[in-house]
């Protein structure tokens, strides 16, 4: 369990890592370029991988190592790779269409993070050490930021990335708060990510063939 009987510098490193995770989600919120987005996602997944490894050493759990390496392969390498290849193949013009201006996005991100901190503080602070509260509130804020990214950006790739950020948040939360989670759960979640991303890429390829773009703004025929 995080927060028990480890030397102080481990906690400092862990705190720094979750802070960087939060920073990477704000990088996504503030960027206009899709490839930048994807790289930030890969970076975030890599940070989560390192954090999971450290937690695995703390808890001396082989399951966590396995999950960490699968995370590295799936979230930090495979998914960003196919997304980048997709962009290259279809020669997407890279700028993301934003509904909200970037400063407003960042302020919303901050508000969501504070809200996440309050929620987590109310829920788990009675029985958790401070470092767990910090890490899990950042995990929850990733979930909120992911939702915000889905509703505020209008391309298929950013929708996929929004869902992936939500998944990252859930994964981080589960590793930090309940490291004893049965490994089968993490495995099926990873499997689910692979299937979902593949399906969404196929769908967006169909969309590209029919409408000539990846923008979801023209998806307005079905109403009422």
């Amino acid at each position: 369990m995080l927060g028990y009987s480890m030397p102080l510098y481990v906690y400092v490193i862990e705190d720094l890592l979750v802070l960087l995770v939060l920073l990477s989600s704000f990088i996504m919120l503030s960027s206009r370029w899709i490839s930048f987005y994807i790289h930030a996602y890969g970076f975030q997944s890599f940070l989560i991988f390192v954090l999971t490894i450290i937690l695995g050493i703390e808890a001396q759990s082989v399951d966590l190592y396995l999950v960490a390496f699968l995370t590295l392969f799936v979230r930090a390498i495979f998914v960003p790779y196919i997304l980048l290849r997709m962009i290259k193949k279809f020669n997407i013009k890279e700028e993301v269409k934003l509904t909200l201006k970037i400063p407003f996005s960042i302020i919303s991100g901050v508000v969501l993070t504070v809200f996440a901190y309050f929620l987590i503080y109310r829920l788990i602070s009675p029985f958790s050490p401070k470092i767990v509260v910090n890490a899990s509130s950042i995990a929850l804020s990733l979930i909120f930021v992911g939702f915000f990214m889905i509703i505020s950006r209008f391309t298929t790739i950013t929708h996929i990335l929004g869902l992936l950020v939500i998944e990252n948040g859930i994964f981080l939360l589960s590793v930090v708060v309940v490291p004893t989670l049965p490994i089968i759960v993490e495995l099926v979640v990873l499997f689910d990510i692979l299937v979902t991303v593949t399906a969404m890429l196929i769908l967006s390829m169909f969309m590209k063939m029919r409408t000539g773009s990846f923008s979801t703004t023209m998806l307005n025929r079905l109403v009422g």
Binding site: E167, I170, L173, V189, L219, L222
Partner: peptide
């Protein structure tokens, strides 16, 4: 495969996947 059916399928996947991830969060809690 028509433009309308692609639109329906896209909305379906995005909305429901986001919903299911919330349910997953609930399960972990």
């Amino acid at each position: 495969v028509t433009e309308k059916s692609i639109e329906a399928a896209w909305k379906y996947i995005v909305i429901v996947s986001a919903g299911i991830s919330l349910a997953l969060l609930g399960t972990i809690l």
